[in-house]
Design a protein around this nucleic acid. Structure first.
Lengths: 122, 122
DNA sequence: TTAGTTCATCGCAAATATACGATTAATAAA
DNA sequence: TTTATTAATCGTATATTTGCGATGAACTAA
C-alpha cells in the first residue's frame, strides 16, 4: 500500500493490544487456546483430531499464537507439546482489562448518550 | 481459499470474541476508540486532525468499528458524531474477561508449567 | 441557485492472511 | 539401515485488509 502521508505513531500499549487482538481475531485460534487450556494437561497435534483442518493449517495457527506469546511449545520428538503461556496470558488479560475499563467510557458525557439533543458541542 | 475438508463449527462465544478482536486488531482503530472515549464528548471528523491518514481511510476504520458495534454514529449534517457504544463496550469487556479468566489457565496442570519432566502424559 | 463543507463510497493497488497438499527434518522403532 | 510418526515449512491459490485519491450525496449558507 502506498503511504504518502506521515506515518502514524502508536504507543506501546496500542501496539501490544493490537497484537494480542490480532492473535485472537480468528475463531479457530480461540478454539485452539480453549482446547489447550481445558485439557488437564497440554497436548500436541491431537488438535487435528478435534479440529477438521489440514495439519499444515493448524501448524500455521499455532505459529501465530506462539509469535503472539500466548502459547509455548516444547519439542519432545517426534511430538511437540503446546501449552498456554501463563505469564503472557495474564499480561494479555491485564492489557484488555485496562483498555476496556468501564471508567474509560463512563467519563464520557456525550450528548448522544445522555440524551442531550443540543447542537454539536464538539 | 479452498475448503475441501469439513467446515469447522464455532460457538457463539468464539465468533463473538473473534469479531471484537478483529475490530481491535489494528492499532489505528484502538487509537480512534481511545480518542472517542477520552474527549469530554464525542466528535466527528476531527479525527483527521489527530491521525495523519487520508479521510477515506479513517472513514473505513470507523465503518469497521461501527460494524463491530463498538461505536455508534449520529448523522448531524453535514457532520457525523461518533461515540463509543457503551452497551457493546461493556459486552466486549465481559467477553474478553470471561475468556481470559485466570481460572482457565490455573486449572491446567501441564507438566511443562509445573516442571514435571516426565514423558508426555497426553 | 450556487458554492462550500463534511463524510461515505468507489475503484484501484499492494500487502497480508488463510487454506491446502507436498515435502522435509527429526526422531523412534523395527 | 529401513520404516513409521510427527510436525514444520514450502509453494501456490484465493480472500481479505489496508491505503490512497477521486467522486458523489446530503446538507448549510450565501
Amino acid at each position: 500500500m502506498q503511504r504518502t502521508l506521515l506515518t502514524v505513531e502508536y504507543s506501546e500499549e496500542e501496539e501490544s493490544l493490537a497484537q494480542f487482538a490480532k492473535a485472537l481475531s480468528h475463531p479457530v485460534r480461540i478454539k485452539i487456546l480453549k482446547l489447550l487450556a481445558s485439557r488437564q494437561c497440554c497436548f500436541t497435534g491431537e488438535l487435528t483430531e478435534f479440529i477438521p483442518m489440514a495439519q499444515s493449517t493448524i501448524s500455521q495457527h499455532l505459529k501465530a499464537l506462539l509469535e503472539a506469546g500466548l502459547i509455548q511449545g516444547e519439542i519432545n520428538p517426534p511430538k511437540v507439546r503446546y501449552c498456554i503461556d501463563r505469564e503472557n496470558w495474564l499480561k494479555a488479560y491485564a492489557v484488555f482489562q485496562d483498555f476496556f475499563t468501564p471508567e474509560r467510557v463512563f467519563e464520557c458525557d456525550c450528548p448522544m448518550l445522555t440524551g442531550d439533543k443540543s447542537p454539536l458541542s464538539c
